[in-house]
């Protein structure tokens, strides 16, 4: 999608609207299943935003990993652990006001930083999947390998924890 055109502007507002509305749903919905599905919508909205940024590879990964894997995982988690009434499964705690104030002040600081900083716009460029792949195997080889270990650790961990949960019951 070409940057600057009317289509682009429209797409941006539409997608960010969807994203933020869905995200609000994730946070404010009382039903955990609804939240989980809205989370998936949020992720898709973000994938759309990546498209408007001409980061197609990112968008694809976002859609596949986040909307696909993560959101599905969350839904499974919800299903596994909740058998009582779903309609009040996602209640807020007693810190609503404190939480709101804290979140607002952090966002306020961030918004100030975003608006008051003179960003050096213009040098950026479109990144291809090939660029990314090359970087993974050259500069970023150590973290790439470390992430492989991390996924292995998570795998082992999930097994260990699951086994433990079973042994316990």
């Amino acid at each position: 999608m070409e940057n600057g055109g009317l289509m682009h502007t429209l797409a941006f507002f539409l997608l960010s609207g969807i994203t933020l509305a869905a995200a609000m749903g994730v946070v404010f919905k009382r039903n955990l299943v609804h939240s989980a599905f809205l989370l998936s919508v949020t992720f898709l909205g973000v994938a759309g935003l990546y498209m408007t940024l001409q980061a197609e590879f990112m968008a694809a990964v976002q859609a596949l990993v986040y909307s696909g894997a993560v959101a599905v995982l969350v839904v499974i988690g919800v299903m596994l652990t909740h058998r009582q009434q779903m309609s009040r499964s996602n209640p807020p705690n007693k810190m609503l006001l404190v939480g709101a104030l804290a979140a607002l002040s952090v966002v306020g600081a961030i918004v100030w930083a975003i608006l008051a900083t003179p960003w050096k716009v213009g040098k950026g460029s479109v990144v291809t999947a090939g660029d990314i792949g090359r970087r993974f195997l050259t500069d970023f080889a150590p973290p790439f390998e470390a992430v492989a270990l991390l996924l292995l650790a998570a795998l082992i961990g999930a097994v260990v924890l699951f086994k433990g949960g079973k042994a316990q019951s």
């Binding site: 609503l96 939480g99 952090v106 966002v107």
Partner: peptide, 10 residues
């Protein structure tokens, strides 16, 4: 901000 709010209040 929405995430942070959810983190603190869920």
């Amino acid at each position: 901000g929405l995430g942070l709010f959810g983190l603190l209040t869920k």
